[in-house]
């Protein structure tokens, strides 16, 4: 466990030295996570009930304006952001765990199992992720659970590949050989000796995948193949706002879009900086 923590702490600690962009990313991520935790309480109004005049522009009372039902856009953005982050987070977490198990297992076992598995991963990865997610939701049916499921499924191959390549690179290392010779079971080797070593790249990938997943989920909802109204969801809000753009009600889609862009930006910036720390090839340059 200490080793695990140390693996995590090292790159984060090294961020303090100099790299402004990385620190900015970290700061944004921390603020975002805090907002996700307490954002609901900060929301001045109920996101589902009218809180003022219909379609009123930003004002002191409603800083982000109100929508066609008079609901407070700021409150809706705060709730929507939390929902999107929760969906993306749970999907990526599931994808990480399943991907690591499948990829790690295939890499560790090798041979025929590995061949078949990699072919499957190839097949899934031969589709663009968004299109595949769209098709999956279209097949499974629109709704929150299926959006989580589709997002998780399309993210599994990345983690499986990652785990497999790391395991392949490390399973022949001396200390793993030593553990094998001393009679440790495959599972024990996998969990105790190999898992901590691949944690770094996994955290990097999870951060980047999270950014991507948020974009993907909102895109699905924007297209109408995701979360159903009236749930406050960023993509859905942008789509609803799009219909009133021509009448000048810009605030309906601009504010949710800004919130969305900032969220994705924060995770991307942080993930990008982490990647620099973890990738020895890039570190040296």
């Amino acid at each position: 466990m200490r080793a695990l923590l140390a693996t995590l702490a090292r790159p984060v600690a090294s961020l303090r030295g100099g790299d402004t962009l990385a620190r900015a990313g970290l700061a944004i991520v921390i603020v975002l996570l805090l907002l996700a935790l307490v954002g609901g309480f900060l929301a001045p109004f109920d996101p589902l009930r009218p809180a003022g005049a219909v379609l009123s522009p930003p004002s002191r009372l409603n800083p982000f304006g109100t929508d066609i039902f008079g609901r407070d856009v700021l409150s809706r953005v705060l709730h929507a952001f939390r929902l999107d982050l929760a969906i993306a987070g749970s999907a990526v977490l599931a994808a990480t765990l399943i991907g690591l198990m499948l990829g790690g297992g295939a890499g560790y076992l090798g041979g025929r199992v590995d061949d078949v598995f990699m072919r499957l991963v190839d097949i899934v990865q031969s589709f663009p992720m968004l299109i595949l997610a769209m098709a999956l939701v279209a097949l499974l049916g629109v709704g929150l659970v299926n959006v989580v499921l589709a997002t998780a499924i399309v993210n599994i191959p990345v983690f499986a590949r990652l785990a497999r390549s790391q395991i392949l690179a490390k399973r022949s290392l001396d200390y793993v050989e030593a553990a094998r010779c001393s009679g440790a079971s495959p599972l024990r080797i996998l969990v105790v000796h190999l898992a901590p070593n691949i944690l770094g790249p996994v955290v990097v990938q999870a951060t980047l995948s999270l950014a991507w997943a948020v974009l993907n989920i909102t895109a699905l909802s924007f297209l109408g193949i995701g979360i159903n109204p009236p749930t406050p969801e960023l993509g859905l809000m942008i789509a609803e706002g799009a219909r009133h753009l021509v009448s000048g009600a810009w605030w309906l889609s601009v504010f949710p879009g800004l919130a969305l862009a900032l969220t994705v930006f924060g995770f991307n910036l942080f993930g990008d900086a982490l990647q620099d720390r973890f990738d020895p090839r890039r570190r040296g340059v």
Partner: peptide, 14 residues
């Protein structure tokens, strides 16, 4: 990173 983070449908709308 910014261009990567801004959703394309929102860029279009703006």
């Amino acid at each position: 990173i910014g261009a990567l983070s801004v959703p394309v449908f929102w860029t279009g709308l703006v």
